[in-house]
Design a protein around this nucleic acid. Structure first.
Lengths: 182, 182
DNA sequence: CGGTAGGGATAGGGTTCT
DNA sequence: TAGAACCCTATCCCTACC
């Protein structure tokens, strides 16, 4: 077909299909797309989908689930960092789906408190940064032990109770942000 | 708090770049953004643009130059269909009945006059809908033959001269809108 | 080319900036 | 309000690999 003029077949996933996919992954595991499709329990709902469709959709679901809290932090990071080099052709959307740059350049943690201050400074959020943004910043920029969040939370509490940080309570939000006192 | 922020170089498209884009579309067709970028004939001029940039720019060009009122029609459509259906699908063929936006669900044309009236009704434009809005509505919601516009124009003329439609002439515009008489 | 993984491309809705 | 540039997400495509 040489034309293809106005023919799309963009078929959005229905909630039913998505539920079937999730159930299928629960039952058969990820990476078993053809198996899920062949399962008579899901095949009726998913009959218009291919195994590749399932794989792609599962990827999307996973990515967006991961991002719930990351998105805000990433946006803040983006704001805080100077504009990237003169926009080359790999500067399109696809990078968002891959791992954030290279983790090879992460520094080792030396002083957690200094790192926290660095995060808040670099995030440059006008109304301070909340815990999650700080977590993400640290995670993205340093080699972190598995219990980093707890350590950071402890230090945040300490730094704000008798240190250089100030807690900001918002009228319209439930989260508490942190900012420098000085 | 006025911090000297980071100005993003809003790289405006130069006439050369725009010409290269148009030539590229002529040569490779729309939707071949990466191909256009890879074409040595255009890559030098467009080297600071991404495939997504090309797509976006082409959309801007098309909206303003070719289809001035396509946007208006789309906005009207959006206005007209605000409450996405209460999610109420039959078991027969969910995909065909949901999401009027998917082109896969276009109905076959049976009665053009009825379709025209449906368009005007659903577009819900307070001052009636002009030809182009109606064209777009039909194009978006039905499988159309290539000469749909001419057919619709003929029926519009007929329906307004001795039918249920009323032509509205505007003081400040040159276009003529149509609305139901009843 | 049967199936999967992952990079990549595209369309279209949104957002930001002016 | 509008237009241009740009961002975000969902979907689909391509290729390497086994």
């Amino acid at each position: 077909e040489g034309e293809g003029e106005f023919s799309f077949q963009s078929s959005k996933w229905t909630p039913e299909e998505e539920a079937a996919l999730k159930a299928g992954v629960l039952k058969h595991g990820t990476g078993k797309w053809r198996t899920i499709l062949s399962d008579p329990h899901f095949s009726s709902v998913l009959k218009s989908r291919s195994n590749v469709d399932l794989k792609d959709k599962w990827r999307n679901i996973s990515v967006t689930a991961l991002w719930g809290s990351r998105k805000k932090a990433k946006l803040a990071l983006k704001r805080a960092l100077p504009p990237p080099p003169p926009k080359h052709d790999d500067d399109n959307n696809t990078r968002a789906l891959t791992s954030p740059r290279t983790h090879a350049s992460k520094k080792s943690i030396t002083s957690l408190d200094k790192i926290i201050l660095e995060a808040i400074t670099n995030l440059k959020e006008p109304r301070g940064s909340d815990r999650t943004s700080i977590f993400i910043y640290v995670e993205e920029n340093f080699k972190t032990p598995p219990n980093m969040k707890r350590h950071v939370a402890v230090r945040l509490k300490h730094l704000s109770s008798n240190g250089p940080l100030v807690k900001i309570k918002h009228k319209y939000r439930f989260s508490t942000n942190f900012t420098s006192a000085g």
